[in-house]
Design a protein around this nucleic acid. Structure first.
Length: 568
RNA sequence: CGGAGUGUAGCGCAGUCUGGUAGCGCACCUGGUUUGGGACCAGGGGGUCGAAGGUUCGAGUCCUUUCACUCCGACCA
């Protein structure tokens, strides 16, 4: 490609809403263009090239693993979503609309329903299984707050794959194969990543794993253990049971006057008791289908924080909402003095599993200015769930060493679905005995356009992008310093043709611009290597530049083609 | 959904308080000089001032309504 003919609108100025390196450089480097609608982007030629590279790698590895590519209709009839029960569950992120006949449709944010429907119509026998089908297509999610460029757009490119099996064992075999395949894909892209345990969210199912690209700018908090392989999204992380060194308070059960003592910290100071022995009670309104809701008190140890995703899963709600103090008062709950015992009618209580059988704790009395002391949960019948957020320093559930937080960008997520979709949608097969069985499913996603952002988050410097070998839009850029110098220009043309003949993808910067201008563009665009043809050409030398670190070395023009083929 | 802000040339912004010919920088076009780190000189093109309604002799500016976008939070495979 000749730069003089290539549509690459690089800019000096940073868009005012861009804060992340990937967002800034993808725009400034002329890879993508904002459409003006929030979270919507056009891919310009340079960005499309990178997207295609990533796309190709994903496809190659999946095809190698025996998957088959299809392409599903982007517009999905709402009836399929109603059958699976997700039409409401998925919430406002799902873009719904009607056609001219007033029929409901959605723009697919993920395609379990469509793929199950496809397989249902074509597979009847166990002899046709297993099957792993995928597509790499646009998705649309009406995000509450799109941001960070390609990182969280509303329209994005995703690979979504679905596997169908006769047994759970076979599905788990495929799940393991996909984990290995995903590792190969992210390794080829040159990413540092970690596979972590995850919450299954709106997709449903169990045993899900996320692939996290490690970057400070990541939106997910993950808990990792440096002593072993354990890693988990904070939404799903577990820990070795926590104990407390401070002595447990001993007290007879009593109602205690605690004027204006509303926080765990104040309570801890007031009674001189470690927060571990206090009960923190968080009130939330749990929202269900068809507008139903209920008030739930989540109780956990004062030393812990509520993990909302865990809490939401515990009550099987679609969502949790905050409750105002006024509303609490109406229900008969006093903010700052709430507790899991003696609750008003109609209020559900869920206890953190670390409170099970706790012999002597302090909690709110559900009465203004009073707490209860000497409360025992021994033999208390209640709903117990893991509700607490793992904290830094908590001990690893695998090896018992302290864990720490880090940040990750979720680029892949694999789920063991089971029959979550095959049953409601009626995707069945006849087994060897002629019996009807629901298919056992797995589902596997990769955020393809998000990967571009993730690569840049991990590979950039203060000057611009630094693409990894397999993601780069070109292998090499040839920069002719002064195109008015006939010798330089001719040398550039000669090398361009020669390297192209070697099978390299080459960008020849033949523009009538000054040297500095072209170098700035090179650094912004981030092609891994460059050959600079400049003043030293008179001595028969050109410069070989490596984008990472920007080191350069002088090389005889006669040998540069060989050196390039050795090193790239 | 709560809080804060912004809509003026392709992009980034001033002008709005105090109504009176639509501005600046970048980018773009023409000519010339320049060519190792985002050059310089001269000339030039480009605008329903987010939309609708109102006040006024006259509205980018004042009033009303509305739409969109951004940031913080809540939220989020």
């Amino acid at each position: 490609m000749r730069f003089s003919k290539f549509l690459v609108p690089t800019t000096k100025e940073t868009p005012n809403d861009a804060t992340l390196a990937s967002h800034i450089y993808l725009i400034r480097g002329g890879f993508i263009q904002s459409v003006g609608g929030s979270g919507l982007y056009n891919f310009l030629p340079l960005g499309k090239k990178v997207l295609d590279k990533v796309h190709r790698i994903v496809k190659e590895e999946l095809d190698n693993a025996g998957c088959q590519e299809v392409s599903l209709s982007f517009v999905t009839p709402a009836t399929l979503w109603q059958q699976s029960g997700r039409f409401e569950k998925y919430g406002k992120e799902l873009l719904r609309f009607k056609d001219r006949k007033e029929n409901d449709f959605v723009l697919g944010p993920t395609h379990e329903e469509m793929m199950v429907n496809l397989v249902k119509q074509t597979v009847q026998s166990y002899k046709q299984l297993p099957l792993n089908l995928y597509q790499i297509n646009l998705k649309f999610r009406d995000e509450i707050r799109p941001r960070f460029g390609l990182m969280r757009g509303r329209e994005f490119l995703m690979k979504d794959g679905y596997s169908f099996h006769v047994s759970t064992e076979d599905m788990q075999r495929e799940f393991a194969l996909m984990e290995e395949t995903y590792k190969k894909i992210f390794a080829r892209l040159g990413l540092a990543f970690k596979v972590v345990e995850a919450d299954s969210g709106a997709i449903g199912g169990s045993g899900s794993k996320e692939f996290m690209v490690l970057a400070e700018s990541g939106e997910d908090t993950i808990v990792v253990c440096d002593a072993c392989e354990y890693g988990a999204n904070i939404e799903a992380a577990t820990r070795k049971e926590k104990t407390c060194e401070a002595e447990a308070p001993e007290a007879e059960f009593a109602r205690f006057y605690t004027p204006d003592v509303k926080t765990i910290e104040a309570l801890s100071g007031y009674f001189r008791v470690d927060p571990y022995y206090l009960v923190k009670t968080v009130a939330k309104r749990a929202l269900y289908d068809e507008g139903r809701s209920e008030v739930v008190l989540f109780a956990l140890r004062g030393s812990d924080e509520l993990q909302e995703v865990k809490a939401c899963n515990a009550v099987d709600a679609n969502d949790l909402a905050d409750i105002s103090e006024e509303e609490l008062a109406q229900i008969g709950l006093a903010a700052g003095f709430m507790g899991p015992v003696n609750v008003p009618k109609g209020v559900r209580v869920v206890l953190d599993s670390t409170l099970k059988d706790a012999p002597s704790v302090i909690c709110g009395a559900n009465e203004k200015d009073y707490h209860l002391i000497g409360v025992s949960f021994a033999e208390k019948q209640a709903e117990y769930f893991d509700l607490a957020a793992v904290q830094e320093g908590d001990l690893c559930p695998c090896c018992g060493k302290p864990m720490r937080y880090t940040k990750g960008i979720e680029v892949g997520h694999i789920f063991q679905l089971g029959t979550r979709y095959s049953e409601p949608l009626g995707a069945t097969f006849l087994d060897e005995n002629g019996k009807i069985q629901p298919m056992i499913m797995g589902t596997y996603g990769i955020g393809v356009s998000r990967l571009l952002a993730a690569i840049i988050e991990q590979h950039h410097d203060e000057k611009g992008c630094i693409w990894t070998k397999e993601s780069a839009p070109f292998d090499l850029q040839i920069i002719v310093s002064n195109t008015k110098d006939e010798e330089q220009r001719a040398a550039g043309e000669m090398l361009y043709e020669k390297l192209k003949a070697q099978g390299k993808e080459v960008l020849l910067d033949d523009r009538k611009e000054r040297f500095g201008f072209k170098m700035k563009d090179y650094e912004l665009m981030g092609v891994p290597y460059a050959i600079v043809i400049g003043k030293k050409l008179q001595e028969g030398l050109v410069e070989f530049v490596c984008r990472e670190g920007m080191q350069s070395e002088d090389i005889l023009i006669d040998t540069i083609a060989d050196i390039v083929s050795q090193r790239i």
